[in-house]
Write a protein that binds this DNA or RNA. Structure first.
Lengths: 154, 154
DNA sequence: CGAGATTAGGAACGATCGTTCTTGACTGAT
DNA sequence: ATCAGTCAAGAACGATCGTTCCTAATCTCG
């Protein structure tokens, strides 16, 4: 009953995550989302409730669909240089988590998953804390991100 | 000639850095700055030119005045858990640097300084790349920050 | 073929953003 | 004392923010 949806909710969610991985939360306006995702304002608000709702959905989607394969790659020792999932997590942790408990919870869960995956990496002789491997990875990605300044001041 | 300035420019710069270390750039409004710093709008714009000007001044000030002592502590092996300088750097690197080449340059310079300081840390038997120590430190601070969710969603 | 329901399209809302302007109070040098 | 120059106080600006509302267009089902 009623007109069918003209967009794929999952595709939109994933695309939104791409935007949120590139710029800060406040740097992505609803107009940007409407334009880049090709979905109308009304549909966005009907489907996700609010900008924050879309953000949370995007974060959740990435954590659920992309994080598993990412952890596999990491556990296999592969270098994942520019995975957008890491960027999304980085931004979520630094910028959103301190002022949004729901984001903080999602980020904490992601850390947990990644820690477990990295601990089963090619064994090190000593026994480092479970977190050191992920810390190093995050630091590395953080620096790589800071080095990719593309646009002008504002 | 003229009425003397009613505030200490360095103190204001430092205080502004404190605000920018706590929230994202877009999350700190000019009204916030005016209110928290106790300096009038006009004075801020007269002194720093713009919000971005104040941000850059704050970042530069912290890098020039706080980073040296921070590197000393780090080189001495001290644990600097909650230094606001690190938070400011973290936020600058993740959120501002990708879209502001000037911030990116400052951040890169800070990395360089910290790398050198950390490489002279209590010698490790092997010879890790110069960056690994800092990477670990950044990762650690990143996670600590994400875990301190205080305020509600919005 | 109509009801009923849900979408797309786009204008419009109040709030807040960064920035500028106007006015008057204050200070230091002449 | 006077004048010039700076600062303080706050109103005001246009732009943009996230969100809502209204009006068709378009689909499914009886």
């Amino acid at each position: 009953m009623g007109r069918p949806r003209g967009f794929d909710e999952q595709a939109v969610t994933a695309a939104a995550a791409g935007l949120f991985a590139g710029r800060a939360y406040d740097g992505v306006s609803v107009d940007d989302l409407v334009q880049q995702l090709g979905v109308h304002r009304n549909s966005l608000y009907k489907t996700f409730g609010s900008k924050r709702g879309l953000y949370l959905a995007a974060l959740r989607w990435h954590l659920e669909h992309r994080l598993p394969s990412l952890t596999e790659q990491l556990a296999a020792g592969a270098a994942v240089a520019d995975d957008p999932t890491l960027d999304l997590l980085l931004l979520a942790a630094v910028e959103r988590a301190p002022s949004d408990v729901e984001v903080a919870a999602l980020v904490a869960k992601a850390w947990q998953t990644l820690d477990q995956a990295l601990q089963r990496a090619p064994a090190t002789p000593a026994d480092p804390p479970a977190s050191t491997a992920l810390n190093a990875l995050l630091g590395e990605r953080l620096r790589a991100r800071a080095a990719t300044a593309s646009a002008g001041p504002s």
